[in-house]
Amino acid sequence: MDMQIIDQTYSQLQAQAQQSAQALQTLAGKLQAAAARGDSQAREWGLDLKEIALSFQAEQQQVVALLQSLHTAASQEVTQQAPAGYAPQPQAPAPQQSGSFLGNLLSSSFGQSIAAGAGFGIGDDLIKDIF
């Protein structure tokens, strides 16, 4: 599998998550404004939206957990196959290792993002901002 494709797909996933979060924020703002104007249904719809946002957040946290598990498994595989005395440096970008899928995965921007714990989901701050 090509690391550029993995990185590109991961970036697209991050962008889509940001678009979804922005759409939820926009809708929440409209509902809050309508509720402030006295629309009795807007408050209830806002609560429904909050439930949906929390569901998206939980789903995206599961995706991040899955990606981190995959990265951890790949890291362990590379470490087990590494020659004696080799110690991977997670903070420094690793050189490209041709021919090794796991080595390439770990040195890709996707792998580095996951190793750093970078998430792309709807965070707690977003949920708090919406409501």
Rank of each mutant, 00 (worst) to 15 (best):
V63C: 10
A58N: 13
I5Y: 09
Q68E: 06
Q19L: 15
Q41F: 02
I130R: 01
F131Y: 11
V63N: 02
I114N: 05
T79Y: 00
Q32R: 14
S40K: 09
R37E: 15
L13I: 01
L24I: 07
D7K: 06
I5Q: 08
D39C: 09
I114P: 02
Q16C: 13
F120S: 07
L105A: 06
Q57Y: 05
A36Q: 12
R43Y: 13
S108D: 06
G103M: 05
F56E: 09
S40P: 01
G117P: 11
Q80E: 06
L27A: 10
G38W: 04
S98V: 07
R37W: 14
M3A: 11
Q81C: 07
L105S: 06
S109V: 08
V78A: 10
P95C: 06
A92G: 03
G29M: 05
A33L: 14
S40C: 09
I6S: 01
A65R: 01
M1N: 00
A17I: 12
Q76A: 11
A23T: 10
A82H: 10
A15N: 09
L24N: 08
F101K: 04
L27Q: 15
Q19R: 11
K30E: 11
A23Q: 13
A33S: 14
F131A: 11
V64H: 02
P88W: 00
A118K: 08
A74K: 01
G29R: 04
E59R: 04
Y10E: 08
G119N: 12
P83Q: 07
A36T: 03
R37A: 15
H71I: 02
D124E: 09
Q97I: 11
A82N: 00
L102I: 10
Q19A: 15
I122V: 15
G85C: 08
Q68L: 08
A115L: 10
Q112P: 11
M3E: 09
D48W: 00
R37L: 15
Q112A: 14
L102F: 12
A21V: 07
T72N: 09
T26V: 14
S20F: 14
A53L: 09
T79V: 02
I130H: 02
A58T: 06
F56H: 13
S55T: 15
A74R: 03
Q80G: 09
F110S: 10
V64R: 03
D39Y: 00
Q96K: 08
P95E: 05
A87G: 00
D2K: 03
K30T: 09
L24Q: 04
S109I: 02
A84E: 11
D39G: 11
D7Y: 13
E44M: 14
A17G: 12
D48E: 10
G99R: 01
D7L: 10
Q68S: 09
I130V: 01
K50C: 12
G123T: 13
P95A: 12
E51T: 13
T9P: 07
Q12I: 01
Q22K: 15
Q91H: 06
S20C: 15
A87Q: 05
S113W: 03
G119K: 03
S113I: 00
G117Q: 12
Q61E: 13
P88L: 05
L126T: 12
P90M: 04
L24Y: 11
S20Y: 10
T72K: 04
T9W: 00
G119F: 00
G46Q: 08
F120V: 01
Q22A: 15
A73E: 03
Q112L: 04
L49Y: 00
A92P: 02
Q91E: 11
R43G: 14
L31V: 09
